[in-house]
Structures are given as C-alpha cells and as structure tokens.
C-alpha cells in the first residue's frame, strides 16, 4: 500500500460498482430506523443485516484510515469524524433496543419463538434470555424470601408483565399516502371507528396503535 488508501478507496471498497450508492442508502435507512426505534414504544423488527453491513463498511474504512495515517492527517481526521458519527448512530440504535428489552423483559420472553425471531436478532435474544434468567435469580434468591409467605407477587408479575404502551400518542410523517388508517380501534361506547387517509409528508398526532403496521413496514417516520 502506498499510503494513498483514502484516495483509492472506491476500488478497495467496491466489489460491485454500485456499492457506493448502497452505503449511502444504507446510511439513510439507518437514520430512519434509528429514529423510529427511538420514538416507538415497543421493539421494532430487527435489522441485523443492515447493521452488520454498515459495521463492516465502517471497519473497512477504519482500516484504510489507519493505513493512511501520517501521510494525510487532516483527511484521516475528517474520515474518522464521519465514522464516529456513524458508530454513534449504530450504537445508540442498538442500545435503545436493549433498553426496551430490559424494560419489557418478561413480555418479550413470552412471545412465540417465531415472533422473537422476527423482532430480535440472535444476539439480542441471547441477551434477553440471560437478562431474564439473572433477574429471576435475583428475585428468587434475594427478594422472595423476605416477602410475607403466600404473597404471589412474583407470579402475578410474571402473569401480567409490563408491556409497551401501544396506545401512547406519537407524531408521524407518512412516507407515502396511507389510506384506511383506523383511529381508535376497539371503540366501545357507540361511536363508530374513524377511518382517515394520511397524506404523504403530512404530520399527524395519533395513537401508535393506529399506525403500528405502517411503522413496522417502514412506511412512516416517527418524529
């Protein structure tokens, strides 16, 4: 290597010559996914492919920057700044997911294996199981013995764990026209359900449960 890695970058990175736009698209996608994960009250389906792919790109780039260091300190610095920004987004996204798992451990553990696979990456599933086991252990060993006997608090807690509040209000911005969005599904006091059309790019305040499907399918941005 002649120390010019940063300038020969595209050849290094591109196995196919479209990968440059792809990285850009991946980053744009990450921004959307990060944002939705932060604003959604529940865990969204995992995007382990995207995360792995971006991490790989970041690693390759860090390697190149490392090699070119010394020759062009300022250029390296600029690249490092960008990489740090991407790493920040990635880790904040992942940490936010772990936070939700810690909050709703029992709930996610009780999902079917199929659903778990849909929502959690393999690593997250391991984390969830470990975390749940350790919490259980702690409660059984250090809390349960000191409760008045016959107080089924721990069982009750398991039967009815904390669940994400799907009814909370969120701000949404549809990426496409969404027809037939049902507001207040489950109305019981005689008013019929209200159905609205959300315009592309408009901004709305409504209950998360009304747009849940669309958030999962990445058709709306939360804000």
């Amino acid at each position: 290597m002649d120390g010019n890695d940063l300038e020969t970058q595209p050849e290094d990175l591109n196995t196919s010559n479209t990968s440059e736009t792809t990285t850009m698209q991946l980053l744009a996608e990450l921004k959307d996914i990060w944002r939705n994960e932060r604003f959604a009250p529940e865990l969204l389906p995992h995007h382990v492919d995207l995360v792995d792919c971006l991490l790989e790109q970041v690693r390759v780039m860090e390697g190149n920057v490392g090699k070119a260091r010394g020759k062009e300190p300022y250029r390296c610095h600029v690249h490092k700044m960008e990489l740090n920004r991407i790493r920040f987004m990635l880790s904040n996204y992942l940490r936010c997911r772990l936070e939700k798992l810690e909050l709703f451990t029992t709930h996610y553990r009780q999902l079917s294996a199929e659903q778990q696979e849909h929502f959690l990456s393999p690593a997250e599933l391991t984390f969830l199981n470990n975390f749940a086991d350790k919490t259980d252990e702690l409660l059984t060993n250090s809390v349960a013995p000191y409760l008045p006997t016959g107080m089924p608090v721990l069982d009750a807690w398991k039967k009815n764990p904390a669940r994400p509040k799907l009814d909370s209000f969120v701000f949404v911005q549809p990426k496409e026209v969404l027809e037939g969005v049902i507001l207040d599904a489950g109305t019981q006091d005689g008013r019929e359900e209200e159905i609205v059309t959300l315009e592309e790019g408009g901004q709305y305040l409504l209950r998360y449960s009304s747009v849940r499907e669309h958030v999962m399918a990445n058709r709306v941005l939360l804000m």
């Binding site: 009815n160 764990p161 904390a162 669940r163 994400p164 599904a185 019981q188 006091d189």
Partner: peptide, 27 residues
C-alpha cells in the same frame, strides 16, 4: 397489586370507554 399500573394503561381501548366524560369534539 403490582401489575395494576401496567394493565390499566395497556388495556386496549380503555381510554375510549369513559371518554363521554369529555366533549365529543374529537377531531
């Protein structure tokens, strides 16, 4: 008991049932 605070708020549609207390101007 411990779980009530979570069931109350996650009960789907729970907000609607008593909303006649409030005005019906919804939109």
């Amino acid at each position: 008991t411990v779980e009530d605070s979570t069931t109350l708020s996650t009960n789907p549609g729970s907000a609607v049932r008593s909303s006649r207390l409030f005005s019906s101007d919804r939109n």
